[in-house]
Design a protein around this nucleic acid. Structure first.
Lengths: 204, 204
DNA sequence: TTGACTTAACTAAAAAGTTAGTCTAAGTTA
DNA sequence: TAACTTAGACTAACTTTTTAGTTAAGTCAA
């Protein structure tokens, strides 16, 4: 638990919101200072430049958002894979800034200060599980599993990165209900696509 | 086939690229003028403001990009649905500006000048087909088909909107091969998720 | 007395946006 | 058919506004 001087943390929080909402080019240093309740000079005192601030914000974001380790509590590859998907969805749900800043960074074509690799945590774990599943016979062998995993994780991600545009398809259900639905849906899709027929006594 | 004065069209083309690459805030009017080979004042002559230009660019984009009508050449809902998916993927592949500008507009939270509805062309057709498939027994009945369709179309979209970050998972295959692969993959996923067991004599 | 900050005015540069006018081609008059 | 008019397409040079970034003196609490 790194600890920051209060002003510094207020700046980082305000910047996170500003950069997430407006992007690097749309973000205004004066507005960040205002929202942080801090004088603009303090921002330059700590971060030297807008770019320096941006870099610090990304570091801070990963520090705050990324789960230290992901649980694998299940007895089978299937259970662990489905659990991983659920964790991914919940992670995205709980960290909206993460999604927005990632999206923006992708557009800028940055490699995101080598942090982007951590995005792959979920992909890499999914691939490891899939391979294990093929070995032990739980999973269908696929010619291009990478394309399937990108599709599945992309389907998870898309909802959050395009939430405002997509919500209208969901009528007036409230958000936590929609998230639970998405977990069920994505589990169902993954199961049908990656795993062999339900020999487990699953309802359906 | 609307026809523009040469300068106007050059401006729109240059703007499309600039806005797609840099976003609204990152875009520079001077650079657009430069790339269009036109004096900056001409931009204000035609479009009044940067915002006006942006609006015009979006209109122009839809005019250029959106397919007038989508074919439904298949004999069954299944065939038509899979064909629709393929068309969606190819559309996204052939119109990279479209994806970038949509993404950006979503981030700005705009309703995109009521154009965004047209995005839904694919969604709406997919939903119509699905409903027909339920009626005639080709499709599994789902409690929340909207969530499944968002997942499928989102999986298609995600690849293109995050292409630069995602390509590394595909090794050194060339792009047209990857696109063909994505069509196969998404068709396979859709088939397994939305349709009943292959009673058709499909290889597999 | 030092580190964490504030104040508030300032600069420089980069943008957006404006002005006043030129050029050309098509139409109009005489 | 030559001279004149007009309107749209376009430009060079300018103004204004916005924004990042600076400075230097000063407060305050531990």
């Amino acid at each position: 638990m790194t600890t920051f001087p209060q002003g510094k943390e207020k700046i980082l929080e305000a910047s996170l919101e500003e950069f997430a909402q407006k992007g690097f080019d749309g973000a205004r240093v004066d507005r960040i200072a205002g929202n942080a309740g801090v004088n603009k000079a303090l921002i330059y005192y700590y971060f030297k430049s807008k770019e320096g601030l941006y870099a610090a914000v990304i570091e801070y974001l990963f520090l705050k958002a990324m789960p230290a380790k992901l649980e694998m509590p299940g007895a089978s590859v299937r259970e662990n894979f489905l659990h991983l998907l659920a964790q991914f969805l919940i992670f995205l749900h709980e960290n909206p800034y993460f999604v927005k800043i990632m999206d923006q960074a992708v557009r800028k074509g940055e490699d995101l200060f080598e942090h982007i690799q951590q995005q792959n945590v979920f992909y890499n774990l999914a691939m490891d599980l899939y391979r294990e599943g093929v070995r032990n016979g739980e999973c269908r062998p696929l010619e291009h599993p990478e394309d399937y995993l990108v599709s599945l994780l992309g389907a998870c991600y898309f909802f959050f990165s395009h939430k405002s545009g997509v919500m209208k398809f969901y009528g007036d259900q409230d958000e936590s209900e929609i998230i639970r639905m998405r977990v069920r849906t994505m589990k169902d899709i993954a199961e049908r696509v990656l795993f062999h027929d339900p020999k487990n006594g699953k309802e359906e």
